[in-house]
Design a protein around this nucleic acid. Structure first.
Length: 192
DNA sequence: CGCCAGATTGACT
DNA sequence: GTCAATCTGGCGG
């Protein structure tokens, strides 16, 4: 298992959001491995994106949106941690929100972390998966391109069909479809 | 400093 | 379907 390099994230957020589908998200927790397949993502941009954390310009709390592609950007919404990976072309701003994963390893521990038994309810939402994988603000800024980070993305040979839709839960969305998911997968947050 | 909104979730009128 | 919990940061709504 090898973390994918930062080059993957040096592209437009939409391209990265699509490329992350089917990849493995790996979380080392003490001696245990928690792992899942990325099945749903959303792309966020900079000042021109009314739903982006970067929309108000560079602030201390959102400065990671301007930083090196491949870093984690984590922040809180309604008491839930959102896990994003910074992704943009040089001198641009943007990131990708991981909205859902399909659990593959460490499922019992995920169930304990979430305090739920139902497999399909374990990681089918952005706040759910961070709780299952014990990801919080402490990981803000780490590089998911390094296995040392204890959170990283690895490749996966998988044939998938990709679906698109508007972003979920945002007040003001852009006219483009910026949510990507694996068609037919049972672990996406919402069937539309 | 107080109030409000938000890339959500879970419980329930 | 409706709605409140509860954290973080913006802004003076």
């Amino acid at each position: 298992m090898k973390a994918l390099s930062g080059r993957l994230y040096e592209r437009d957020p939409s391209v990265v959001a699509e490329k992350l589908l089917g990849k493995r998200l790996i979380r080392k927790l003490n001696k245990e491995i928690l792992e899942g397949i990325v099945v749903e993502t959303e792309a966020y941009y900079g000042l021109d994106d009314p739903a982006s954390r970067a929309r108000h310009g560079l602030k201390n709390y959102n400065r990671l949106m301007w930083s090196e592609p491949g870093r984690a950007f984590i922040y809180n919404v309604h008491n839930n941690w959102m896990f994003n990976i910074i992704a943009h072309e040089p001198n641009e701003v943007g990131g990708v929100l991981i909205r859902a994963i399909e659990p593959t390893k460490g499922i019992d521990l995920m169930k304990r972390n979430r305090k739920v038994e139902n497999l399909h309810d374990l990681t089918n939402g952005p706040g759910k998966l961070t709780k299952a994988l014990k990801i919080d603000k402490g990981f803000n800024g780490v590089f998911v391109t390094s296995e040392e980070s204890q959170i990283f993305i690895a490749d996966n040979k998988m044939k998938i069909e990709i679906g698109r839709s508007h972003r979920i839960g945002v007040k003001r969305d852009l006219p483009t479809d910026l949510r990507f998911f694996i068609e037919g997968n049972q672990f996406v947050s919402k069937a539309l």
